[in-house]
Design a protein around this nucleic acid. Sequence first.
DNA 1: TTGTACGCGTTATCAA
DNA 2: TTGATAACGCGTACAA
Lengths: 330, 330
Amino acid sequence: MAERLNVSPSTISRALQNHPSIGKKMTAEVHKLAKKLGYYPNSVASNLRRNKTNVIGVIIPRIDRYYQSSAISGIEEVASKAGYYVIIFQSNNSYEREKENARMLLASQADGIIACLALETNNYDHLAVFKENNIPLVFFDRVCYEIETHKVIIDDFGAAVKATEHLISIGCRRIAHIAGNQKMAIFRDRLRGYQETLKKNNIPLEEELICFTEDLSSEEGDAATQKFIEMQVPPDGIFCSNDPCAIGVIQKIKKAGLSVPNNIAVVGFGNTPTSLIIEPALTTIDDHAFEMGQAAARMVIRQIEESQENVDSETIIIQNDLIIRDSTLK
Amino acid sequence: MAERLNVSPSTISRALQNHPSIGKKMTAEVHKLAKKLGYYPNSVASNLRRNKTNVIGVIIPRIDRYYQSSAISGIEEVASKAGYYVIIFQSNNSYEREKENARMLLASQADGIIACLALETNNYDHLAVFKENNIPLVFFDRVCYEIETHKVIIDDFGAAVKATEHLISIGCRRIAHIAGNQKMAIFRDRLRGYQETLKKNNIPLEEELICFTEDLSSEEGDAATQKFIEMQVPPDGIFCSNDPCAIGVIQKIKKAGLSVPNNIAVVGFGNTPTSLIIEPALTTIDDHAFEMGQAAARMVIRQIEESQENVDSETIIIQNDLIIRDSTLK
DNA sequence: TTGTACGCGTTATCAA
DNA sequence: TTGATAACGCGTACAA
């Protein structure tokens, strides 16, 4: 260590963190010497001693999806400002990988966890473990209601209502919905929003106008649209549970020689960058992914730092906006 | 810990890592008990003892750019298979943040570093530190030639040649280039590829056909196109140093009532998802970001595990492809 | 095949 | 304001 130059091991430690009870001269000198020697404290040892790692673990399906990487950006921004590291694990929507990720995070002594569930997951023991070990856990977006924790979500039901009502307001009367995987609450809520809105407006629900998909890919959007177009009376509006799917829908409608929005209006969900590039530009729900990330990070940090055996699970609902563009502008 | 059930602290340790010199019965029993008690070794302590963290630190400009998140996906895939964690820091293209990130990674005792430089960076001391401390460092994409390390890049010069030659081959004779920030080698190389190709084909280089941008945004593409269109003899082809910029260019050309590719053909760089959605679909260079990430991860892990005071800096060049789409199909 | 004892580099506590 | 000491939880050399 650096104490070979002067004397004392703990004085160095204190000086380096500007402890008040250390002489200014001493402090300055230590800092200078540290810089000269290129000395930096070993945070692994510090972590062991303090029993704190300043690490926030994030478990998400895939980092190369716009929604997820935006959320992570938000997490990282808040975390790094507060002096935390962000360590990221991708589950690839696999339950096994998610379990493995949780195991690794547990072993790494992360101070807190932020998770967005994998599609496959329907057993939550690997995450409940964090609660048992008193490690703060915050879910965002794809949350689970089986564990009592803090959550950051958007009002998926309300957003779907907005989207559907918008389609009705521009004159659509035969509105289809392409739904996401019904294992996830968010997709169930969007479907419900769609259904309730039709009911409320006295529009009959037709089973054949609802298409269930595995993962809302463009290809599934394409296939669903094919079926819709072939119907005797095709729909005049389609509400898709995400943007990539809506893009596939629009491309298919155009390929069939029909017009968006004149023949069929389309609404997406997510406000991805692509929604502005497709022609016509896609009307969609902005889900404020970046802010969700920020909120989740703030939440988990607050829990870490309060550490009181604490307030029961709290849910933050992030605002969402319907962004109206050409795909519904008749 | 768990030795209160049987006897011995170190036996537990050995059993848990399946040390050969431990009875099979013992080993099995310990594993069973560990599972039952929910015991997991504290890796912070282990890291301290072994002087190894199994962490690979990644410093990149922004995670919410498609190129970067794809590369990270590649890194993560390779790393996690090899038992490494990936810890990500965003520099936001700021030199100060990059310095801070490097400092934190140094303190966290990362076993190896993968970096993609910030735009602002032109002093490299904060990264040279890793070499001094014998921590493997691999650059990818935005590399620096001032430090001798391993690098993963694509042949930007060659890719630009391919792109420019393609424009010439479809009959373009007045080809413009929208160049990226010339602080970065990749953008200088792309410019050079463009220039050399024109020369080789006896096409005069015209200064006014080269537009230098700050960060190749869509907006800058839009503005550059405005100028090009207003010229007495506008260009008949534009090679853009990235896709977002090319998207701005295409949108502007169309807004001006001109046709892509008939009036002006456009080539981008990066093969982002948007290049397939814009109309006409964008001809572009696929830079294989995911594979770059994989290669970088393999490289850094190899160095970590060989640890021999080692082979001098090696450079891997990842293949790139010109993907021809409608924006250049006359 | 198993147990003992020490040390990794910090920091908290207590004493000076 | 500073120094001495112990302890964080694990891995390993050595002894048994």
